[in-house]
Every structure is written in C-alpha cells, then in structure tokens.
Design a protein around this nucleic acid. Structure first.
Lengths: 197, 197
DNA sequence: GTAATCAAACAGAACGGTCGGTACAATTAA
DNA sequence: TTAATTGTACCGACCGTTCTGTTTGATTAC
C-alpha cells in the first residue's frame, strides 16, 4: 500500500540527520529508511539529493526566522538586551549534552559552501535573513542605552552571530559548551555602553 | 620504478585538498593522483584515510603554532595590538579570491567533530594550542594599555579566535571576505580600553 | 668485492560494499 | 480510463581497503 508522505515532515527529519551526520556522510537510503519513504517516493518528491538539501536549507531558514522573531519580540518582562542574551544562551543550551550537532546552516556552510556554489549561495542568503531578523532588537537595545550606540546595529549583529557560529563549531568538536557560553557572555558585556562614559 | 615519497609533502598536499573539498568529498584515489602516489604507497604510509586526516591535523597544528608565534612576536615596529590585528587581517586576506576555502581546523571541526570523536578531540586540542600561542600577545596588549585590562586574556583570545572561525565559515559560503574584515575590526575596536575611562 | 638475504616500500589490479540515481511494473487517486 | 505516485530491483560509478607480487636498498655472509 502506498503511503502519503508529508514533504515538510520528511524535510524536518532529514534536517536532523543532515545536522548530525553532514551531507556527504548521509545517504539517500538512510533518509528513506528513517522517514519511511522508498526511493521511488524520494525521487518523486525531490529532483536529487542536492535539491533535497537546498529545500531543507530553505525550510530551516524560514522556520528559524520565525523562531528568532518570536523569541526576540518584546515580552513585557525582559529588555531588548536581556532577550538577545537569553536567545543565544538558549540556542547554546538547547543542544543535547554529548550530542552536540551545532547549527544546521553553520554546518552546511562549512561543509558545502565551497563544494556546491548553489548551496553556498542559498545558505548565505538564509544567514542574511537571520541577521535581518535580529537587527531590530539590537537597535532597540541601543535606544534603551543597553548597548553601545556608537556602533552600527547591523555590524553588531553580524559580530554576534558570527561569534555564535564560531563557538558552535568549537563546541561541536570538543562536545563542551561551557567555554562557548563564557565567550558569548564576554562579547555581550563588551557591547554594553562604556561604563564610565 | 618506485618513487620515494616524503610523508610531510604528501600531508601538506593532502591538507590543501582536505581544506577545499572536505574529508568526505575527497577520495583516496584523488589524494594519490595529486601526490603521485599509488594506493600501495598510500596504505603503506597511512593505516587508513582517517589516520591520514589525523596526521594532517597534527602537522597543520604544529606548523600553525609556529606561524602564529612567528607573526605575533615583537618586531620592533608594531605594538602588540597592531600585531594581533595584522595577524587576523593577514589570515583573512591570504585566502585567494573566489577560492575561499577557510581554515583547515575550522573546516574539519565542523565536518568531522561529531562524526569522528577522535578527529573532534584532536582538532580541539590543536585549537587550544592556537589559543595558548596567542594569549601572551593579548596580555602584552593589555599591559600596554591597548586592550581592556579588566578582561581575562584567555577569554579575550577565545573570543577573538572563535569570531575568526565564525566569519571564516560565512566567508567560505558567500565567497566574500569584506564583511568578515569589518566584523573582526569591530571586535578589535571593542576590546580597546574604555575610551572615556 | 659481491652474492645472498630480507624487510620495507611500492605498484596497481581486484574486492566487497555503498553511493546517487533510474527503470518499470504495480498501485492508487481522479 | 488516465495520470500520478510508489515499491523494488537494479545500474554503473565510486568508495576505502586488501591483495599479490615487484622493486629497492641496506645488511650480512663469504
């Protein structure tokens, strides 16, 4: 009996696999096995394995932008600066202990950015969208006087998220996030206005 | 006629291949083709492809520590802060345009950190050695009054190098280093002592 | 001096396994 | 009936590795 497969669910399951195993280490057979698809169904739904990856990148990006906006929006309790800090802490701590797979876009950028130009371009686009989604909260923190107003908000955001990617990579390799949290905290403290100004 | 292969040269050539193609995308056949080895010679020199990777990581780490120390040592012209800034600029700009492969250790950490525990551990160790090699110059910059003395030198160094890795990954994917340089500059400016203190 | 010996290094064909992808009949939905 | 979807066997290419046999160069024996 044929099974009706929800493409979005397949992509979401595939994302987790891609995130932990990487693209080259993950076979189409395994994607099919885990999602319960057959090869016929897979290649009916996706033109190729690479196209599957790109669709996963796009879906992840879309959902992540929503998540960013949701977690950073004013909640009546925390200031913009606090929400930003909580946001990055949460993402670091969300990683299961001893199963630290890192961020999907960061991993794909690193593995495929130079191998597949198309994948590189698409994941870069998603990164820019993440930045776009975070910038308003950084601006709010600047207006609050919680962050240095002399700096460009977009530059600050690029710095924050780049550093986040950097510590993620190191944490993924050492399977330890303690240092990552210290590093992110240091950066946040440094982005406060000059205390004695 | 048999050819005498220098293991170090083979590893260096392999490093460049690993850096641009990644581990999973690089076959032993290609390593052999580029280095002029045959399979027999390769498997006589290396127990396995993974062992080849680990030896490449170790050699890269060793050479990179030497390079860091050499580029950061006092030159009678530049202050510690200037030498640090020049060091990171140089590493970013050293990447050939449109052929931006990133940093070997960063790439391997991201691709293999979770796939092979051994590779993850070894590359993390090399990262720590890089930090060890940079810390003294950060301390010197603090003593000079060029960098904020209130912060822990090792923490600053971790932040610098993590951010460097982050911007490298993004640059590798977008094939553009302009933003990376701006981001690193912003971080350096922020690590100066509070101007109005 | 030189012939015999031997382990290490090398060459490259071959192996079993896995890869992404396809062919096509069977099944389902319209 | 017809078109779309699925299940499965299968393809050629490629993978890391192993294999057998050869070459090499240093060591040993005479």
């Amino acid at each position: 009996m044929n099974i009706k497969h929800d493409k979005v669910n397949v992509l979401k399951t595939g994302m987790a696999l891609l995130c932990s195993k990487g693209y080259s280490n993950l076979g189409v057979d395994e994607i099919c096995k885990v999602t319960g698809m057959t090869k016929g169904a897979f290649y009916n739904a996706f033109k190729s394995k690479e196209q599957f990856l790109i669709e996963a990148v796009l879906l992840y990006g879309e959902n992540n932008v929503k998540r960013i906006k949701s977690e950073l929006e004013p909640n009546g309790q925390n200031s913009a600066f606090e929400r930003l800090q909580m946001f990055y802490h949460k993402m670091l701590k969300a990683q299961p202990r001893n199963n630290f797979t890192g961020c999907f876009i960061n991993n794909i950028m690193s593995e495929m950015g130079f191998v597949s130009e198309l994948v590189g371009i698409e994941s870069s686009k998603e990164f820019v969208k993440f930045i776009d989604a975070i910038v308003p909260t950084v601006m709010e923190a600047q207006e609050n006087g919680e962050m240095n107003r002399e700096l460009d908000a977009r530059q600050i955001t690029e710095l924050l998220h780049s550093t986040f990617y950097g510590v993620l990579t190191i944490a993924k390799s050492s399977q330890n996030i303690d240092q990552s949290i210290l590093t992110i905290n240091l950066l946040f403290n440094n982005l406060k206005p000059n205390q004695n100004a």
